[in-house]
Simulated scan of single mutants.
Amino acid sequence: MDVGSIAQLSTTMAETGTRQAVGLTVLKKAQDIQSSTATALLEALPPIQSAPSLPAHLGNRINTTA
């Protein structure tokens, strides 16, 4: 292996590391944006209205013969 190919290999490895670091930073930024968007959507939902009071006997049994 000559000196030129060693230098080229070193440069290629450094570029690959830089590309991976940039890609990871972009991914983290995209996740932050997605998180803030989801939070904004959840906060924009109207409050849940309570259901009217149902009789106590409703919902206690399941009809399995239907």
Score class of each variant (00 low, 15 high):
59 G>N: 02
21 A>T: 03
5 S>N: 05
54 L>V: 09
6 I>R: 04
29 K>M: 12
8 Q>T: 13
53 S>T: 14
9 L>K: 12
59 G>S: 08
4 G>V: 14
47 P>E: 03
11 T>K: 08
1 M>H: 03
53 S>L: 10
30 A>G: 06
44 A>S: 15
56 A>H: 00
37 T>A: 13
26 V>A: 11
48 I>C: 08
48 I>V: 13
40 A>C: 10
57 H>Y: 08
9 L>P: 00
66 A>L: 13
62 I>H: 04
44 A>T: 15
61 R>C: 06
8 Q>A: 15
13 M>C: 05
46 P>G: 03
17 G>W: 00
24 L>V: 10
42 L>N: 13
4 G>Q: 12
18 T>N: 08
16 T>E: 09
47 P>I: 00
51 A>P: 07
52 P>A: 04
41 L>N: 10
38 A>T: 13
58 L>Y: 07
28 K>V: 01
12 T>V: 11
4 G>Y: 12
37 T>E: 15
38 A>Q: 13
4 G>P: 00
44 A>F: 02
3 V>M: 09
44 A>P: 06
40 A>N: 14
57 H>T: 07
11 T>C: 08
43 E>K: 15
34 Q>C: 10
42 L>V: 07
11 T>D: 13
49 Q>L: 06
55 P>N: 02
65 T>V: 15
52 P>F: 03
32 D>R: 04
15 E>I: 14
58 L>C: 07
30 A>F: 03
56 A>S: 10
7 A>K: 06
8 Q>R: 11
9 L>Q: 13
52 P>W: 03
46 P>A: 08
39 T>H: 04
42 L>T: 11
54 L>R: 09
13 M>I: 12
2 D>R: 06
33 I>W: 02
34 Q>P: 00
58 L>D: 02
39 T>Y: 09
58 L>Q: 05
29 K>P: 00
35 S>F: 06
36 S>W: 03
31 Q>N: 10
26 V>R: 07
31 Q>H: 09
10 S>V: 01
7 A>C: 10
